[in-house]
């Protein structure tokens, strides 16, 4: 009973928030609606018993990703009204529906075929976080490490792309060049 109430409440809230995100013409409204939608999605994870996933969802999405978007938006002119693509509305809606039905088929095909067996079944009396730790660090150790390397590469590329004077390398420059660069920088600051 309570599960049904929670499900319908959060389903309505999530759909409403994401609808605002894709339809509003203000970038800041879209950002805040998306952040709220992410938090509401974590509620589904808690309902489904995936506690650790819900916590990660709040920390990573509402914490890291949204903060990154907020800082990124400081670079852009967000007060300007967004222009929309003027395309065929029926085409867009039709394509979206077809793709959505395709997704359902992809997910439902193995269920209809009824040959799903649990690869890593949940054990009784063990917390969700503990279970995930056990599976992640034994069966999924290599993908975990690859994800770590991928995040490192993404971090380095983010710094290099957004930072200033990243085309220069201090280790490849001579001392005199570095001194010149510092002098120029000080001149700019003082003037």
């Amino acid at each position: 009973m309570f599960e049904a109430i929670a499900f319908y409440l959060f389903a309505f809230l999530t759909i409403a928030m994401f609808y605002i995100t894709v339809t509003t013409s203000q970038a800041l409204y879209a950002l805040t609606a998306l952040a709220a939608g992410m938090i509401f999605i974590s509620a589904f994870f808690f309902i489904l018993g995936a506690d650790f996933l819900g916590a990660v969802q709040i920390v990573v999405y509402s914490g890291a990703v949204m903060a990154l978007y907020a800082f990124g938006m400081m670079f852009f002119d967000t007060t300007r009204e967004l222009k929309e693509k003027k395309g065929n509305k029926f085409l867009i809606t039709g394509l979206a529906s077809v793709a959505a039905v395709l997704i359902v088929v992809i997910f439902a095909a193995p269920i209809v075929g009824d040959n799903i067996t649990a690869l890593y079944p949940m054990t009784e009396g063990v917390g969700n976080t503990q279970e995930i730790g056990m599976v992640l660090f034994t069966k999924y150790l290599v993908p975990f490490e690859l994800a770590a390397v991928m995040l490192l590469v993404a971090m380095v590329s983010g710094i290099v792309l957004a930072g200033k004077k990243m085309d220069l390398s201090l280790t490849l420059m001579s001392d005199a060049e570095i001194k010149d660069m510092r002098k120029e920088k000080n001149k700019k600051v003082l003037s």
């Binding site: 894709v22 970038a27 967004l82 959505a100 359902v104």
Partner: peptide, 20 residues
């Protein structure tokens, strides 16, 4: 629910002009 959210996202991808 997942399908509804997915179609909302797809509509967003197709009608938005701003990359953000």
């Amino acid at each position: 629910l997942s399908t509804i959210l997915f179609s909302i996202g797809l509509v967003g991808v197709m009608r938005r002009k701003n990359l953000l």
